[in-house]
Write a protein that binds this DNA or RNA. Structure first.
Length: 334
DNA sequence: AAAAGGCACAACCGCATCTCT
DNA sequence: AAGAGATGCGGTTGTGCCTTT
């Protein structure tokens, strides 16, 4: 039975024949589609209007791009999906010539499987649950962790994986702060190197390109105050960069490279709503961006004021460190 | 060679939202 | 304001091709 819009008509279903395609293309080329429900009759097709619309949008439109998805398109899908979820029509708008159906099919048949293989939940892009994680770890001999904010019980988007058996090095995509699906395609990516002791795992993020490098350390520990019993990872506050600074600097790194930081939500929600330090320094605006804390704008501070040479040595400019650290102490005082 | 299974892609279905009267 | 039809969207199913058994 056809859809209600054409239930009174005798409608054909299933795959479209070349003749039907030709009729539809000819009609729309000459007259436009107008009201889709009237298209079948006007075009001489025994199809439902919805079916005609779908056929045109997904297959017959002249501006459609054909062929396999490029690596760039795949990255775009990943990045947008991380933020929007399964909103295929919205995702497809970022990919000229691609349809929502095409993106959805590509996701379900290819990308989803890659994420699962990496131990990531394709819905959240975070790690799979601890039971699933254990399976993954056992299977792949990987140790996996995530950045988590114990104060707000809310995860950062960033995820890293570390392979403890094969050189302890993995490329992280600076745009998403996630392991690259195809690391060979990203030459400017920072690297992360890992050291494991009996109780701690330290991670060094190494941002070498294009303008600065700095390091931070993480250690795995249990946060009973968090939402679940999942293993959590924090960046040690005893090192040069606290967690919030990590977010800010990551955002800046991305903005500085013309990339929209995937950390944007984390930067905004985690940093901006926090109480400001009582002592306000001259560089506060650079840290917070605009003053309006309710603003939905994502604010990156001005890269031009950062002492990149200082950062290249693996340290943070004193004034920046001071600000970030004061915010951090407030936020992390659980 | 043929059946079974896996896969990618096309198409459909039901529901939500929009638009028009 | 309300209802009916049109449109848009996302989940799901159907189809045909290719590979494996």
């Amino acid at each position: 039975m056809g859809h209600h819009c054409c239930s009174k008509q005798k409608v054909k279903r299933g795959l479209w024949s070349p003749e039907e395609d030709e009729k539809l293309v000819r009609h729309i080329t000459i007259h436009g589609h107008g009201c889709w429900s009237s298209v079948p009759k006007l075009a001489g097709l025994q199809r439902c209007g919805k079916s005609c619309r779908l056929r045109w949008i997904n297959y017959l439109r002249p501006d459609l791009k054909r062929g396999s998805f490029t690596e760039q398109e795949e990255r775009t899908i990943l990045d947008v999906h991380r933020i929007l979820g399964n909103r295929w029509a919205q995702i497809a708008k970022h990919l000229p010539g691609r349809t929502d159906n095409e993106v959805k099919n590509f996701w379900n048949s290819a990308i989803k499987k890659k994420l699962i293989a990496q131990g990531l939940d394709p819905n959240t892009h975070n790690l799979l649950s601890s039971s699933q994680m254990t399976k993954t770890s056992t299977k792949n001999n990987n140790v996996v962790g995530k950045l988590i904010n114990p104060h707000h019980d809310q995860q950062f988007n960033s995820v890293f994986t570390m392979d403890t058996s094969s050189g302890n090095k993995e490329i992280i995509d600076p745009k998403t702060m996630s392991p690259l699906l195809n690391s060979a395609s990203y030459t400017n990516a920072p690297t992360v190197s890992l050291n494991e002791t009996s109780s701690n795992i330290s991670t060094t993020f190494d941002f070498q390109n294009p303008s600065f490098a700095w390091t931070c350390r993480t250690r795995m520990m249990e946060f009973s105050s968090c939402s679940s019993s999942m293993e959590s990872t924090v960046i040690s506050t005893s090192s040069s960069i606290p967690p919030s600074g990590f977010g800010i600097l990551s955002g800046d790194y991305m903005w500085g490279n013309g990339l929209e930081p995937c950390f944007d939500r984390a930067v905004h929600e985690e940093i901006l709503p926090r109480p400001r330090p009582e002592k306000v320094s001259t560089t506060e605006e650079e840290i917070y961006g605009v003053n309006d804390q309710n603003s939905t704008e994502i604010n990156a501070f001005d890269s031009s004021n950062i002492d990149f040479e200082f950062m290249d040595s693996g340290l943070v400019p004193p004034e920046l460190y001071c600000n970030v650290n004061s915010v951090d102490q407030l936020a992390w005082d659980c």
